[in-house]
Write a protein that binds this DNA or RNA. Structure first.
Lengths: 187, 187
DNA sequence: ACCAGTGATGGCACTGAGTGCTATGGTGGG
DNA sequence: CCCACCATAGCACTCAGTGCCATCACTGGT
Protein backbone atom coordinates (compact mmCIF):
# COMPACT_ATOMS: atom_id res chain seq x y z
CA UNK A 1 0.00 0.00 0.00
CA UNK A 2 1.51 3.24 -1.11
CA UNK A 3 5.11 2.40 -1.73
CA UNK A 4 5.73 5.60 -3.74
CA UNK A 5 6.71 8.23 -1.23
CA UNK A 6 7.47 6.68 2.17
CA UNK A 7 7.93 10.16 3.61
CA UNK A 8 4.47 11.38 2.70
CA UNK A 9 2.98 8.08 3.86
CA UNK A 10 4.70 8.47 7.22
CA UNK A 11 3.45 12.05 7.56
CA UNK A 12 -0.09 10.88 6.87
CA UNK A 13 0.13 8.12 9.45
CA UNK A 14 1.61 10.41 12.08
CA UNK A 15 -0.94 13.14 11.40
CA UNK A 16 -3.79 10.66 11.57
CA UNK A 17 -2.60 9.17 14.85
CA UNK A 18 -2.32 12.62 16.45
CA UNK A 19 -5.70 13.78 15.23
CA UNK A 20 -7.48 10.55 16.17
CA UNK A 21 -5.99 10.68 19.65
CA UNK A 22 -7.02 14.29 20.04
CA UNK A 23 -10.55 14.30 18.61
CA UNK A 24 -11.51 10.66 18.16
CA UNK A 25 -11.61 8.68 14.94
CA UNK A 26 -15.11 9.62 13.84
CA UNK A 27 -14.59 13.34 14.43
CA UNK A 28 -11.60 13.57 12.10
CA UNK A 29 -12.06 13.86 8.33
CA UNK A 30 -9.68 12.61 5.69
CA UNK A 31 -9.28 16.21 4.55
CA UNK A 32 -7.98 17.23 7.99
CA UNK A 33 -5.42 14.43 8.02
CA UNK A 34 -4.22 15.32 4.55
CA UNK A 35 -4.01 18.99 5.42
CA UNK A 36 -1.82 18.35 8.46
CA UNK A 37 0.40 16.10 6.36
CA UNK A 38 0.71 18.78 3.71
CA UNK A 39 -1.24 16.89 1.07
CA UNK A 40 -4.60 17.13 -0.63
CA UNK A 41 -7.59 15.06 0.41
CA UNK A 42 -7.45 13.25 -2.92
CA UNK A 43 -3.89 12.15 -2.28
CA UNK A 44 -4.83 10.62 1.06
CA UNK A 45 -7.01 8.10 -0.74
CA UNK A 46 -4.15 7.34 -3.11
CA UNK A 47 -1.99 6.23 -0.18
CA UNK A 48 -4.73 4.42 1.74
CA UNK A 49 -7.85 2.78 0.33
CA UNK A 50 -9.89 4.07 3.24
CA UNK A 51 -9.65 6.12 6.40
CA UNK A 52 -9.22 3.13 8.73
CA UNK A 53 -6.26 1.65 6.90
CA UNK A 54 -4.06 4.60 7.86
CA UNK A 55 -3.74 3.02 11.31
CA UNK A 56 -2.89 -0.47 10.08
CA UNK A 57 0.13 0.18 7.91
CA UNK A 58 2.37 -2.82 7.52
CA UNK A 59 -0.24 -5.28 8.69
CA UNK A 60 -0.06 -7.14 5.35
CA UNK A 61 3.34 -8.39 6.40
CA UNK A 62 1.98 -10.49 9.24
CA UNK A 63 0.01 -13.01 7.17
CA UNK A 64 2.97 -13.23 4.82
CA UNK A 65 5.24 -13.92 7.77
CA UNK A 66 3.08 -16.86 8.73
CA UNK A 67 3.93 -18.64 5.52
CA UNK A 68 7.65 -18.09 5.98
CA UNK A 69 7.50 -19.14 9.60
CA UNK A 70 5.78 -22.39 8.69
CA UNK A 71 8.47 -23.12 6.14
CA UNK A 72 11.05 -22.92 8.93
CA UNK A 73 9.34 -25.60 11.03
CA UNK A 74 9.90 -29.27 10.34
CA UNK A 75 6.88 -31.06 8.87
CA UNK A 76 7.31 -33.72 11.56
CA UNK A 77 6.19 -31.33 14.27
CA UNK A 78 2.55 -31.70 15.31
CA UNK A 79 0.13 -29.01 14.05
CA UNK A 80 -0.43 -27.12 17.29
CA UNK A 81 3.25 -26.68 18.20
CA UNK A 82 3.83 -25.64 14.60
CA UNK A 83 1.21 -22.93 14.95
CA UNK A 84 2.81 -21.72 18.16
CA UNK A 85 6.24 -21.63 16.54
CA UNK A 86 4.86 -19.58 13.67
CA UNK A 87 3.25 -17.18 16.11
CA UNK A 88 6.67 -16.56 17.64
CA UNK A 89 7.89 -15.29 14.29
CA UNK A 90 4.83 -13.17 13.72
CA UNK A 91 5.10 -11.76 17.22
CA UNK A 92 8.74 -10.85 16.71
CA UNK A 93 7.86 -9.05 13.50
CA UNK A 94 4.99 -7.24 15.18
CA UNK A 95 7.12 -6.06 18.06
CA UNK A 96 9.86 -4.91 15.73
CA UNK A 97 7.52 -2.68 13.73
CA UNK A 98 5.39 -1.55 16.64
CA UNK A 99 6.86 1.82 17.41
CA UNK A 100 3.53 3.44 18.20
CA UNK A 101 1.93 0.20 19.31
CA UNK A 102 0.51 1.55 22.53
CA UNK A 103 -0.86 4.77 21.11
CA UNK A 104 -2.32 2.97 18.13
CA UNK A 105 -3.92 0.42 20.41
CA UNK A 106 -5.59 3.12 22.49
CA UNK A 107 -7.02 4.81 19.42
CA UNK A 108 -8.25 1.53 17.97
CA UNK A 109 -9.88 0.43 21.20
CA UNK A 110 -11.72 3.75 21.42
CA UNK A 111 -13.54 3.30 18.11
CA UNK A 112 -15.94 0.48 17.22
CA UNK A 113 -15.19 1.00 13.55
CA UNK A 114 -11.46 0.54 14.11
CA UNK A 115 -11.96 -2.47 16.36
CA UNK A 116 -13.99 -3.99 13.55
CA UNK A 117 -11.16 -3.44 11.11
CA UNK A 118 -8.63 -4.86 13.53
CA UNK A 119 -10.63 -8.07 13.66
CA UNK A 120 -10.31 -8.26 9.89
CA UNK A 121 -6.55 -8.02 10.25
CA UNK A 122 -6.55 -10.82 12.81
CA UNK A 123 -8.74 -12.85 10.50
CA UNK A 124 -6.17 -12.44 7.75
CA UNK A 125 -3.55 -13.94 10.03
CA UNK A 126 -5.88 -16.76 10.95
CA UNK A 127 -6.55 -17.45 7.29
CA UNK A 128 -2.82 -17.58 6.58
CA UNK A 129 -2.37 -20.10 9.39
CA UNK A 130 -5.28 -22.14 8.12
CA UNK A 131 -4.01 -22.34 4.54
CA UNK A 132 -0.49 -23.12 5.74
CA UNK A 133 -1.88 -25.99 7.81
CA UNK A 134 -3.95 -27.29 4.92
CA UNK A 135 -0.83 -27.34 2.77
CA UNK A 136 0.56 -29.71 5.38
CA UNK A 137 -2.39 -32.02 4.84
CA UNK A 138 -4.17 -31.01 8.02
CA UNK A 139 -7.92 -31.51 7.52
CA UNK A 140 -9.78 -28.30 6.84
CA UNK A 141 -11.91 -28.45 9.96
CA UNK A 142 -8.84 -29.00 12.13
CA UNK A 143 -7.01 -26.18 10.40
CA UNK A 144 -9.84 -23.75 11.07
CA UNK A 145 -9.95 -24.60 14.76
CA UNK A 146 -6.20 -24.44 15.17
CA UNK A 147 -5.96 -21.14 13.32
CA UNK A 148 -8.62 -19.54 15.50
CA UNK A 149 -7.12 -20.94 18.67
CA UNK A 150 -3.78 -19.60 17.53
CA UNK A 151 -5.06 -16.10 16.99
CA UNK A 152 -6.76 -16.25 20.37
CA UNK A 153 -3.42 -17.04 21.96
CA UNK A 154 -1.77 -14.36 19.89
CA UNK A 155 -4.23 -11.66 20.86
CA UNK A 156 -4.08 -12.58 24.52
CA UNK A 157 -0.28 -12.57 24.42
CA UNK A 158 -0.13 -9.24 22.63
CA UNK A 159 -2.57 -7.71 25.09
CA UNK A 160 -0.44 -8.91 27.98
CA UNK A 161 2.71 -7.65 26.30
CA UNK A 162 1.26 -4.18 25.80
CA UNK A 163 -0.17 -4.07 29.31
CA UNK A 164 3.23 -4.90 30.73
CA UNK A 165 4.79 -2.24 28.48
CA UNK A 166 7.04 -4.82 26.88
CA UNK A 167 8.88 -5.76 30.06
CA UNK A 168 8.60 -9.41 29.08
CA UNK A 169 9.57 -10.60 25.61
CA UNK A 170 6.64 -11.44 23.38
CA UNK A 171 7.75 -15.06 23.17
CA UNK A 172 7.26 -15.42 26.92
CA UNK A 173 3.78 -13.97 26.69
CA UNK A 174 2.93 -16.32 23.83
CA UNK A 175 4.18 -19.36 25.70
CA UNK A 176 2.26 -18.33 28.78
CA UNK A 177 -0.96 -17.82 26.85
CA UNK A 178 -0.58 -21.14 25.03
CA UNK A 179 0.05 -23.02 28.24
CA UNK A 180 -2.92 -21.31 29.81
CA UNK A 181 -5.20 -22.37 26.97
CA UNK A 182 -3.94 -25.96 27.01
CA UNK A 183 -4.54 -26.20 30.74
CA UNK A 184 -8.03 -24.69 30.44
CA UNK A 185 -9.20 -26.92 27.63
CA UNK A 186 -7.33 -30.13 28.21
CA UNK A 187 -9.26 -31.56 31.10
CA UNK B 1 -33.75 -2.76 16.35
CA UNK B 2 -36.91 -1.50 14.78
CA UNK B 3 -39.66 -2.99 16.87
CA UNK B 4 -42.33 -0.66 15.43
CA UNK B 5 -43.59 -2.37 12.34
CA UNK B 6 -42.40 -5.99 12.11
CA UNK B 7 -44.04 -6.27 8.72
CA UNK B 8 -42.09 -3.43 7.16
CA UNK B 9 -38.92 -4.69 8.78
CA UNK B 10 -39.48 -8.12 7.29
CA UNK B 11 -40.13 -6.62 3.86
CA UNK B 12 -36.89 -4.67 4.07
CA UNK B 13 -34.90 -7.75 5.08
CA UNK B 14 -36.44 -9.87 2.34
CA UNK B 15 -35.90 -7.19 -0.30
CA UNK B 16 -32.31 -6.70 0.78
CA UNK B 17 -31.54 -10.40 0.68
CA UNK B 18 -32.98 -10.73 -2.82
CA UNK B 19 -31.17 -7.69 -4.18
CA UNK B 20 -27.87 -8.59 -2.57
CA UNK B 21 -28.06 -12.08 -3.98
CA UNK B 22 -28.89 -10.73 -7.41
CA UNK B 23 -26.45 -7.83 -7.75
CA UNK B 24 -24.00 -8.14 -4.87
CA UNK B 25 -23.96 -6.14 -1.66
CA UNK B 26 -21.89 -3.22 -2.91
CA UNK B 27 -23.98 -2.76 -6.06
CA UNK B 28 -27.23 -2.28 -4.16
CA UNK B 29 -28.17 1.06 -2.63
CA UNK B 30 -30.31 1.61 0.42
CA UNK B 31 -32.76 3.46 -1.81
CA UNK B 32 -33.27 0.39 -3.97
CA UNK B 33 -33.94 -1.81 -0.96
CA UNK B 34 -36.43 0.67 0.44
CA UNK B 35 -38.14 1.05 -2.92
CA UNK B 36 -38.67 -2.71 -3.29
CA UNK B 37 -40.00 -2.85 0.26
CA UNK B 38 -42.41 -0.01 -0.47
CA UNK B 39 -40.71 2.47 1.84
CA UNK B 40 -38.64 5.59 1.50
CA UNK B 41 -34.87 5.59 1.74
CA UNK B 42 -35.11 7.64 4.90
CA UNK B 43 -37.23 4.99 6.56
CA UNK B 44 -34.69 2.27 5.83
CA UNK B 45 -32.24 4.02 8.13
CA UNK B 46 -34.90 4.23 10.80
CA UNK B 47 -35.20 0.45 10.85
CA UNK B 48 -31.49 -0.30 10.50
CA UNK B 49 -28.57 1.88 11.61
CA UNK B 50 -26.65 0.97 8.48
CA UNK B 51 -26.91 -1.04 5.29
CA UNK B 52 -25.05 -4.08 6.66
CA UNK B 53 -27.30 -4.57 9.67
CA UNK B 54 -30.24 -5.50 7.49
CA UNK B 55 -28.66 -8.95 7.12
CA UNK B 56 -28.00 -9.49 10.82
CA UNK B 57 -31.44 -9.04 12.31
CA UNK B 58 -31.90 -10.76 15.62
CA UNK B 59 -28.20 -11.19 16.25
CA UNK B 60 -28.44 -9.16 19.45
CA UNK B 61 -30.27 -12.09 21.00
CA UNK B 62 -27.26 -14.37 20.86
CA UNK B 63 -25.04 -12.50 23.33
CA UNK B 64 -28.06 -12.14 25.60
CA UNK B 65 -28.66 -15.88 25.37
CA UNK B 66 -25.14 -16.50 26.63
CA UNK B 67 -25.93 -14.89 29.93
CA UNK B 68 -29.08 -16.94 30.39
CA UNK B 69 -27.32 -20.12 29.36
CA UNK B 70 -24.60 -19.56 31.93
CA UNK B 71 -27.20 -19.07 34.60
CA UNK B 72 -28.55 -22.55 33.84
CA UNK B 73 -25.19 -24.22 34.43
CA UNK B 74 -24.05 -25.12 37.92
CA UNK B 75 -21.13 -23.00 39.18
CA UNK B 76 -19.35 -26.23 40.11
CA UNK B 77 -18.78 -27.10 36.47
CA UNK B 78 -15.33 -26.23 35.14
CA UNK B 79 -15.08 -23.17 32.87
CA UNK B 80 -14.57 -24.93 29.53
CA UNK B 81 -17.52 -27.33 29.85
CA UNK B 82 -19.58 -24.38 30.98
CA UNK B 83 -18.70 -22.52 27.82
CA UNK B 84 -19.64 -25.53 25.72
CA UNK B 85 -22.95 -25.89 27.50
CA UNK B 86 -23.71 -22.23 26.86
CA UNK B 87 -22.87 -22.66 23.21
CA UNK B 88 -25.48 -25.39 22.97
CA UNK B 89 -28.12 -22.87 24.01
CA UNK B 90 -26.85 -20.23 21.63
CA UNK B 91 -26.72 -22.74 18.82
CA UNK B 92 -30.27 -23.86 19.45
CA UNK B 93 -31.44 -20.25 19.33
CA UNK B 94 -29.49 -19.61 16.15
CA UNK B 95 -30.94 -22.64 14.40
CA UNK B 96 -34.42 -21.75 15.48
CA UNK B 97 -34.24 -18.28 13.96
CA UNK B 98 -32.19 -19.22 10.92
CA UNK B 99 -34.84 -19.48 8.24
CA UNK B 100 -32.68 -17.99 5.51
CA UNK B 101 -29.41 -19.12 7.06
CA UNK B 102 -27.95 -20.58 3.91
CA UNK B 103 -28.85 -17.70 1.60
CA UNK B 104 -27.69 -15.15 4.14
CA UNK B 105 -24.45 -17.00 4.57
CA UNK B 106 -23.77 -16.98 0.83
CA UNK B 107 -24.38 -13.27 0.58
CA UNK B 108 -22.21 -12.54 3.59
CA UNK B 109 -19.35 -14.68 2.36
CA UNK B 110 -19.40 -12.87 -0.98
CA UNK B 111 -18.74 -9.45 0.51
CA UNK B 112 -15.66 -8.43 2.53
CA UNK B 113 -17.67 -5.69 4.17
CA UNK B 114 -20.29 -8.14 5.38
CA UNK B 115 -17.72 -10.66 6.54
CA UNK B 116 -16.18 -7.87 8.58
CA UNK B 117 -19.49 -7.13 10.19
CA UNK B 118 -20.10 -10.79 10.90
CA UNK B 119 -16.85 -10.93 12.83
CA UNK B 120 -18.17 -8.10 14.97
CA UNK B 121 -21.24 -10.18 15.75
CA UNK B 122 -19.07 -13.13 16.74
CA UNK B 123 -16.98 -10.82 18.87
CA UNK B 124 -20.10 -9.72 20.69
CA UNK B 125 -20.82 -13.34 21.57
CA UNK B 126 -17.23 -13.82 22.68
CA UNK B 127 -17.47 -10.74 24.88
CA UNK B 128 -20.65 -12.07 26.46
CA UNK B 129 -18.91 -15.36 27.23
CA UNK B 130 -15.91 -13.53 28.65
CA UNK B 131 -17.94 -11.34 30.99
CA UNK B 132 -20.05 -14.29 32.08
CA UNK B 133 -16.86 -16.17 32.94
CA UNK B 134 -15.42 -13.23 34.82
CA UNK B 135 -18.58 -13.05 36.88
CA UNK B 136 -17.74 -16.61 37.92
CA UNK B 137 -14.36 -15.42 39.15
CA UNK B 138 -12.44 -16.80 36.18
CA UNK B 139 -9.29 -14.68 35.72
CA UNK B 140 -9.59 -12.20 32.88
CA UNK B 141 -6.82 -13.74 30.79
CA UNK B 142 -8.39 -17.19 31.09
CA UNK B 143 -11.79 -15.80 30.24
CA UNK B 144 -10.49 -14.17 27.07
CA UNK B 145 -8.87 -17.35 25.87
CA UNK B 146 -11.88 -19.51 26.68
CA UNK B 147 -14.24 -17.07 25.00
CA UNK B 148 -12.23 -17.02 21.80
CA UNK B 149 -11.78 -20.77 21.80
CA UNK B 150 -15.51 -21.10 22.33
CA UNK B 151 -16.37 -18.90 19.36
CA UNK B 152 -13.88 -20.85 17.25
CA UNK B 153 -15.73 -24.03 18.11
CA UNK B 154 -19.04 -22.32 17.48
CA UNK B 155 -18.07 -21.05 14.06
CA UNK B 156 -16.65 -24.37 13.01
CA UNK B 157 -19.76 -26.17 14.22
CA UNK B 158 -22.08 -23.74 12.47
CA UNK B 159 -20.10 -24.05 9.24
CA UNK B 160 -20.37 -27.81 9.42
CA UNK B 161 -24.05 -27.61 10.21
CA UNK B 162 -24.74 -25.38 7.20
CA UNK B 163 -22.57 -27.49 4.91
CA UNK B 164 -24.51 -30.57 5.92
CA UNK B 165 -27.76 -28.70 5.37
CA UNK B 166 -28.80 -29.31 8.95
CA UNK B 167 -28.89 -33.08 8.66
CA UNK B 168 -27.14 -33.34 12.03
CA UNK B 169 -28.39 -31.38 15.03
CA UNK B 170 -26.28 -28.40 15.95
CA UNK B 171 -25.43 -29.93 19.32
CA UNK B 172 -23.71 -32.81 17.58
CA UNK B 173 -21.66 -30.44 15.45
CA UNK B 174 -20.69 -28.45 18.53
CA UNK B 175 -19.63 -31.55 20.44
CA UNK B 176 -17.64 -32.77 17.47
CA UNK B 177 -15.84 -29.45 17.05
CA UNK B 178 -15.07 -29.22 20.76
CA UNK B 179 -13.68 -32.72 20.85
CA UNK B 180 -11.63 -31.97 17.77
CA UNK B 181 -10.10 -28.88 19.37
CA UNK B 182 -9.34 -30.67 22.63
CA UNK B 183 -7.62 -33.49 20.77
CA UNK B 184 -5.58 -31.03 18.66
CA UNK B 185 -4.40 -28.88 21.52
CA UNK B 186 -4.22 -31.26 24.42
CA UNK B 187 -0.87 -32.93 23.82
C1' DA C 1 -68.59 13.59 14.64
C1' DC C 2 -64.77 16.68 15.99
C1' DC C 3 -60.45 17.52 17.93
C1' DA C 4 -55.87 16.94 19.97
C1' DG C 5 -51.92 14.14 20.79
C1' DT C 6 -48.82 10.68 19.39
C1' DG C 7 -45.86 8.33 16.43
C1' DA C 8 -44.39 6.39 11.96
C1' DT C 9 -43.19 8.05 7.63
C1' DG C 10 -41.59 11.06 3.77
C1' DG C 11 -38.99 14.71 1.81
C1' DC C 12 -35.14 17.81 1.97
C1' DA C 13 -30.68 19.23 2.68
C1' DC C 14 -26.31 18.50 4.47
C1' DT C 15 -21.67 16.23 5.75
C1' DG C 16 -18.24 13.08 4.66
C1' DA C 17 -16.25 8.67 2.48
C1' DG C 18 -14.65 7.04 -1.63
C1' DT C 19 -13.78 7.34 -6.86
C1' DG C 20 -13.03 8.57 -11.89
C1' DC C 21 -11.21 11.90 -14.77
C1' DT C 22 -8.29 15.64 -16.17
C1' DA C 23 -4.85 19.21 -15.68
C1' DT C 24 -0.48 20.58 -13.87
C1' DG C 25 4.03 20.72 -12.18
C1' DG C 26 8.40 18.64 -11.16
C1' DT C 27 12.03 15.49 -12.41
C1' DG C 28 15.16 12.50 -15.03
C1' DG C 29 16.89 11.06 -19.57
C1' DG C 30 17.96 12.16 -24.30
C1' DC D 1 16.48 22.26 -23.90
C1' DC D 2 12.80 19.27 -24.63
C1' DC D 3 10.04 15.35 -23.80
C1' DA D 4 8.01 11.65 -21.30
C1' DC D 5 6.62 10.13 -17.00
C1' DC D 6 4.45 10.25 -12.66
C1' DA D 7 2.84 12.04 -8.28
C1' DT D 8 -0.29 15.31 -7.03
C1' DA D 9 -4.19 18.68 -7.09
C1' DG D 10 -8.62 19.84 -8.26
C1' DC D 11 -13.25 18.91 -9.70
C1' DA D 12 -17.41 16.49 -9.94
C1' DC D 13 -20.03 12.72 -8.83
C1' DT D 14 -22.37 8.65 -6.14
C1' DC D 15 -23.84 6.99 -2.01
C1' DA D 16 -24.00 6.19 3.23
C1' DG D 17 -25.74 8.23 7.08
C1' DT D 18 -28.16 12.07 9.75
C1' DG D 19 -30.87 16.14 11.47
C1' DC D 20 -34.92 18.66 10.79
C1' DC D 21 -39.51 19.50 9.74
C1' DA D 22 -43.97 18.51 7.45
C1' DT D 23 -47.50 15.14 6.89
C1' DC D 24 -50.54 11.52 7.57
C1' DA D 25 -52.85 7.81 10.15
C1' DC D 26 -54.49 6.20 14.28
C1' DT D 27 -56.22 6.72 18.95
C1' DG D 28 -58.76 8.39 22.86
C1' DG D 29 -61.65 11.87 24.87
C1' DT D 30 -65.62 14.93 24.59
Amino acid sequence: MARWDPDAEGRLRAAALELFQEHGFENVTAAQIAERAGLARRSFFRYFPDKREVLFAGSEQLPAAVGQAFAAVSPDVAPWPTVLAALDSVGALLVEHATDAVRRREVIQASPELRERERTKSAAIALAIQTALEQRAVPSADATLLAHAGTAVFQQAFTQWVDEAGRQPIETCLAAAAERLERLIGI
